[in-house]
Design a protein around this nucleic acid. Structure first.
Lengths: 229, 229
DNA sequence: GTGGTATTCAAGTGAATACTTGAATATCAC
DNA sequence: GTGATATTCAAGTATTCACTTGAATACCAC
């Protein structure tokens, strides 16, 4: 009645998708690519692995179809193959945060104590953006900003923030956002800004969730601020 | 700046969720449990594995928190730990069906050719239910029907269908549903009914998707049809 | 208590996995 | 064509994994 070998193969195929996400390093890769496409060497740098090893992880993601490639001269850029992958990755994090016992400790060990940091949800931010009383600050690396960001956001990568504080408009609350809930950039930015007495909060989630929710996005280089020449 | 070991551990924790779904047998278990709770021996039977092996797979699902247990005398019933798990499993299937190259062949090898079988979407079915011109037929095993089904559905497990054809009301189109898109029960039912000249189609998706979509559900034993006693 | 059943645990085996190292390809600049 | 760079491939090793078998545990009926 039921065709056991065929059923097993079908479910092995489903499982192959989960399996390829079942490595912390590949999960980090997907998390990085959720911000936009990247060449191999940069991905390797992001996940702290050798290029050869990173390449092999990317091959596995490619074989299952989670990523695609684009050649540009001698470099090969990887990107997620579609929004279904973004949703899958979000579903994994959601289940982990609800059901994996140690996740809270691990998150706190990486992110530090967030109790003192206020955060805004997406809808709160859209409301305040409409009211015009906030500055939206994208603290991801600039190329991630270029490949897509919240409309009207200012790009100041967290590594440059300390030196570029003067570029930021005063008098309005600054809402910093980054790659997502489990990314430290916005936290660091908020702490840095507060130390200088500037009012700052973080967006609870990050750019991929914003885009996935169908909210407006914008792409391209940041406007130069300040300006000798 | 970034705490590599802590970040790796955090992403290993995310990945542990995906990893545990990264086995065809455990994926089958999750698919079975999406219909409702089941004791170990029945799960083993469903996935065609030994009880010892099934138990170990269940321990792994338990360790990561995807399932919970309930003891009833000497038997232990497993169930999914929440709707986030159902959504995760749906996301896995969605990505697989969009991006895994061989999935179509594998699905066809297991399900047979579906070209000849019409199917209805959830919304089409709710419309026709409101119009009152369909009979909804649940062809899953009866205990799955009891733990939750589409309101007003008649329960006739596919294995009993051939012998109980007379119990079904005539004159209206029969819409059969089962565990989901990749379940053969409804297909078999539709074929059986059509061979007898009865108008039948299948619901595209299955009971878990119906419930997850927030549509009304009903639980409890089926009404006896026909009746000596 | 004894006997029976459902489930889990423990040990063993063959296959698959992650990462390393060093060599092979492919494109570009010239 | 040559040299330089980005990426992939191949081989090797230590670890992890899926499944089997047989024993241990936990509950129930009596």
């Amino acid at each position: 009645m039921s065709d056991r070998p065929a059923k097993d193969k079908l479910f092995d195929a489903f499982a192959s998708v989960a399996k390829v996400l079942g490595s912390g390093r590949r999960a980090e890769i997907v998390d990085v690519l959720a911000q936009g496409e990247r060449p191999v060497d940069e991905i390797a740098e992001e996940i702290g692995q050798s290029i050869a090893n990173t390449s092999q992880h990317l091959q596995q993601l490619l074989r299952v179809g989670l990523v695609r490639t684009r050649r540009e001269g001698t470099r090969i850029h990887y990107r997620l193959s579609g929004t279904a992958v973004t949703r899958l990755w979000a579903a994994v994090r959601e289940v982990a945060s609800e059901h994996v016992a140690e996740l809270d400790e691990l998150a706190e060990a990486y992110l530090g104590d967030r109790a003192a940091l206020d955060s805004l949800t997406r809808t709160e931010l859209t409301n305040r953006m409409a009211a015009g009383d906030v500055v939206v600050l994208d603290v991801r690396p600039e190329h991630e900003f270029r490949s897509g960001h919240i409309p009207g956001a200012v790009s100041v990568p967290v590594r440059e923030l300390a030196g570029r504080m003067r570029d930021l408009p005063h008098g309005r609350i600054i809402v910093a956002y980054c790659r997502g809930q489990y990314c430290v950039f916005a936290d660091e930015a908020v702490r840095t800004l507060r130390e200088q007495g500037m009012p700052a909060v973080r967006l609870e989630e990050g750019y991929p969730e914003w885009a996935e929710a169908g909210l407006p996005v914008e792409a391209g280089a940041p406007r130069k601020s300040g300006a000798p020449g």
